[in-house]
Design a protein around this nucleic acid. Structure first.
Lengths: 348, 348
DNA sequence: CTGAAAGCGCTAACAA
DNA sequence: TTGTTAGCGCTTTCAG
């Protein structure tokens, strides 16, 4: 008797109703079928014994895994042209964390798979009774897609850096332009005229940002070839550039890490930030915001929203609520003013 | 018919044996009960249709979740005395990845829970039918332990930084001394005599290393108060110290990030590494080893082994194979020579 | 060593 | 709106 505390049957007995009423009362999708008073009574019994449904039984019955597989690509940070001091300290955990939260909110499990550049996943990972769908994170390869499509396993790519033009796969990506546009307009309004761009040399992930900034700078008439510098390989390059250049009043950096270095270097050289120069980063990296940080202004990539969107879209496909098996969704970036610009938030 | 491809029943029919023989043949723990030829026949059918057992059904039947909950503490990197440039680029993902691999190897699921400093987890996370045990990662609090013990949910702390003296909880930790000892002996053998220690100021996680190094330096007669510097707050401190000090021939750093900075600063100042000075880090951080890196010598914390040990010990408790509900296991660190010392590997 | 059958806890179809 | 019941796929007796 006591061993069966944790079952619908036990709760049913406890509250004097039938097993199925309890089942209905506990499922948000079906609890409207139960009279409110009854629901309340059941709820009390459930709380009393701290009951929660047996997911294995539920999933067996529903023939659903209620699990989403998240495949994380193990980028090794080891690029000739990208020193580790420019790598975000939150990189790699942020996405996992946001996806974990989004998946949990849907009452699904997250199955995490890490995959190294040269490694192949075993196919049982994609077994229909182990997972309902797959989200690829910061991964650009398509070697699994054919298999997934053949087995009708819903899948989606989610990345802040993926090429937004690709339509061969489902995609939740980022439209970087709005945030940059807001930032440029805000800085112009604040009187800035000499705009610089700092980033490491071309990389897949950066090409898009560089391209966008290039076009926007030209559109707003602030492009200056001498100040457009996608050449920073490491800290010493930042140091060198800032020692030399004085003819700048607004610096855009390709991420918050670089922006923070720039701010610190400028201040050490007696340049006031934002008094003399404004600095804007990219990513809204938690490590550079809040107490004991420089609170750099930044362009936010809405990571939590991206994760929620990716999970939502995937589950739409899973539950056949979606006509479009390959959604193509781009979320807008937003300019987040910080303590390194004089500008005001422009809403959004 | 075709819809039931993926069941023991189907495989049984396919291979002309009974359902239970298939069940036995597929479970490594029970397949000795099946005649080898039969096993082989079954295996072929299984492979042909890419069958894998329905875990929900298995788990329902076994009344086990076959899941381990991993609770990751969200340390925010935001300490007055610890700049982000000293944070490991792999931090936070390494442990998750190793645990994921170790758990997967046991055919369990990993349930990941992130927990912020001020946040409390809902108790259904610890429900017996959702998880078989809990591993706390880099977490020192004990607010859940009472609840877990009361509900007889096996749990364990795993951390490279946890106080190895605490016996109030199960623990898989690190015995840092062996690696340091190996390193010191190797450097002494190579003729070094003036040993320095570089680290950020006292933090819980560093106190132990500082203490150990202090004692070992004294034991080996290489302690010099002027070279013992647990005062590095950021890159500029490294820069400043190295500009001034010339009377050093071996530098121990509290992690690989700092070691890498030290190596780069020394070389920029014309000091040869390891020619004039040897540098040793700590953590065997993948970001600082291999191609395009400085390949710093380091003290390895055996992360994969720690994860495997933690999972193994936890499952021993889960499966009642263990008399000791609170294991206390410390794994040895190992000195890994790199390109920043002249020493030889000492095996292990 | 192999097979038949019970039953884990749940949801949904059906009956009331 | 509520209750009864079949059966999801599996493991484990128990019988042969």
């Amino acid at each position: 008797m006591e061993k069966n505390r944790h079952s619908l049957k036990y709760i049913a007995k406890l509250s004097g109703v039938s097993l199925s009423s309890v089942s209905r009362a506990l499922d948000p999708a079906r609890n409207h079928m139960v009279r409110p008073e009854l629901r309340e009574k059941i709820r009390r019994c459930v709380d009393k014994v701290n009951f929660s449904v047996n997911l294995s039984a539920r999933r067996l019955r529903l023939n659903k895994a209620e699990a989403i597989t998240v495949i994380v690509y193990l980028d090794s940070f080891k690029h000739k042209t990208f020193s580790v001091e420019f790598a975000s300290p939150s990189a790699g955990r942020d996405d996992i964390q946001c996806l974990s939260a989004a998946i949990k909110a849907r009452r699904y499990d997250m199955k995490l798979e890490f995959i190294a550049p040269d490694q192949r996943l075993p196919y049982h990972v994609f077994d229909r009774n182990r997972t309902d769908g797959v989200i690829f994170v910061s991964y650009y390869g398509t070697e699994y897609v054919d298999y997934l499509e053949k087995n009708k396993l819903p899948n989606l790519y989610m990345s802040r850096y993926i090429d937004t033009k690709r339509h061969d796969v489902g995609l939740v990506g980022l439209n970087r332009e709005p945030g940059y546009r807001q930032a440029i307009e805000a800085l112009l309004k604040a009187g800035h005229r000499r705009f610089a761009w700092f980033s490491p040399p071309f990389q897949t992930s950066l090409r898009v940002n560089i391209h966008i900034i290039n076009e926007l700078f030209r559109e707003y008439g602030v492009f200056d070839e001498r100040l457009f510098l996608p050449t920073l390989c490491n800290y010493y390059d930042v140091h060198g550039i800032l020692k030399v250049r004085r003819d700048v009043d607004a610096i855009f950096c390709s991420n918050d890490v670089i922006a923070d270095w720039v701010v610190r270097e400028l201040r050490r050289n007696g340049v006031r930030v934002p008094g003399d120069v404004s600095v804007v980063g990219y990513d809204n990296d938690p490590a550079y915001h809040g107490e004991w940080t420089n609170n750099v202004a930044t362009i936010e990539a809405p990571k939590a929203l991206m994760a929620e969107t990716a999970v939502g879209e995937l589950l739409k496909i899973v539950n056949h609520e979606n006509a479009e098996p390959h959604p193509h969704i781009l979320l807008d970036t937003i300019f987040i003013p910080g303590d390194t610009t004089f500008t005001q938030a422009k809403g959004g």
